[in-house]
């Protein structure tokens, strides 16, 4: 048990260091930007409506007079106390904006994550089990095509077909325009196309990787032996069991690209989530918000890989029992 705790603690420390690195890198990149937030239009408009204290704090973060190191440390100090600054665009605390946007995106991300994982695993198993035959060629062909297609263009196509031609689904947004309280059904209708786009692009990637793993497993000695013993249900008994571990890794590693995809898809469908906020923050030079979004996103990605590592330990008997034996 102490072995596992030690492992987890080590991973947590590494994750904290990585987050620190991400925030510093993002800060330096923004700092290097010739686009001064206090000089851009959005910044100036924002200044007018801010309290003097807020402006003073902003100057402290982004003003040209303070050295970069000092500014970063002051940001880090506040960040550790749970204050990521004030968004220039939304004129509200960054954490609040992120919280609200993330809760809108979470719907989309969670659905796409589950759907792409299930679809990807299923298609990957189908292709791998039929290696070289037509289901394999079909799945691989489709997945390669999808992964060669820009996610936003796929979104545009779906939009043209379902919203413009067939007129069965709304053009975008999370809720009907101007329509007060949205029902669950309406929310679902609005999330359907963006969710579908994200799921398809995500599933293609997972299916291709799963297929490779399935083929590796099928080439193994133990599958040969299982066949030599006339075992039935080899796919269920052996392949699924041995593909489970890499599938877990793949599934959690897909979080990063899923969030990346959501940036594009939310832009296409005008879905007011975290991704769209990131684009607005970038275009409007809203540095505090962009920095906050980057750090939160990285935390989600690292959290995902940590979860995968921990699950690995729980699933793989070599780690589970091996640790107990030591």
């Amino acid at each position: 048990m102490s072995h596992r705790l030690q492992f987890t603690a080590k991973k947590l420390v590494r994750m904290a260091l990585l987050l620190l690195g991400v925030s510093l890198t993002a800060f330096l990149l923004m700092n290097a930007s010739p686009l001064d937030p206090l000089q851009t239009n959005v910044g100036q408009a924002a200044l007018g409506s801010m309290s003097p204290e807020q402006i003073a704090k902003l100057e402290e973060y982004w003003g040209a007079d303070t050295p970069a190191a000092e500014r970063y440390l002051s940001w880090l100090g506040s960040a550790l106390r749970g204050d990521l600054g004030v968004s220039l665009l939304y004129r509200r605390p960054v954490l609040e904006v992120i919280g609200q946007r993330l809760s809108t995106s979470l719907w989309l991300l969670a659905c796409a994550w589950v759907l792409s994982g299930a679809l990807g695993l299923g298609l990957g198993l189908l292709a791998g089990a039929n290696r070289g035959r037509w289901p394999d060629r079909l799945v691989r062909g489709c997945c390669l095509t999808v992964s060669s297609t820009p996610a936003f263009w796929l979104g545009l196509l779906l939009l043209i077909v379902f919203a413009v031609w067939l007129k069965i689904l709304p053009i975008g947004m999370a809720v009907p325009i101007g329509g007060g309280q949205a029902t669950l059904l309406e929310r679902l209708r609005h999330a359907l196309l963006p969710g579908l786009t994200l799921s398809i692009t995500g599933a293609a990637n997972i299916a291709l990787h799963t297929r490779e793993k399935v083929v590796d497993v099928l080439d193994s000695d133990y599958i040969l032996f299982a066949r030599a013993r006339g075992e039935r249900h080899i796919l269920r008994r052996h392949v699924l069991r041995n593909v489970a571990l890499p599938a877990v890794t793949l599934q959690f590693a897909s979080i990063g690209e899923l969030i990346g995809g959501s940036v594009l898809v939310e832009q296409v469908f005008s879905y007011p989530g975290l991704g769209q906020a990131a684009v607005s923050a970038g275009l409007g030079s809203d540095m505090p918000l962009l920095l906050g979004i980057t750090v939160v996103t990285a935390a989600l990605v690292f959290g995902g890989s940590l979860t995968a590592d921990l699950l690995y330990g729980a699933i793989d008997p070599r780690i589970r029992k091996g640790a107990a034996a030591q």
Binding site: L29, I259, G261, V263, T294, T297
Partner: peptide, 13 residues
């Protein structure tokens, strides 16, 4: 750890 799109946005900025 940072999604490609976000990182490219940052570097581009």
């Amino acid at each position: 750890g940072v999604p490609h799109i976000l990182l490219i946005m940052l570097i581009s900025l």
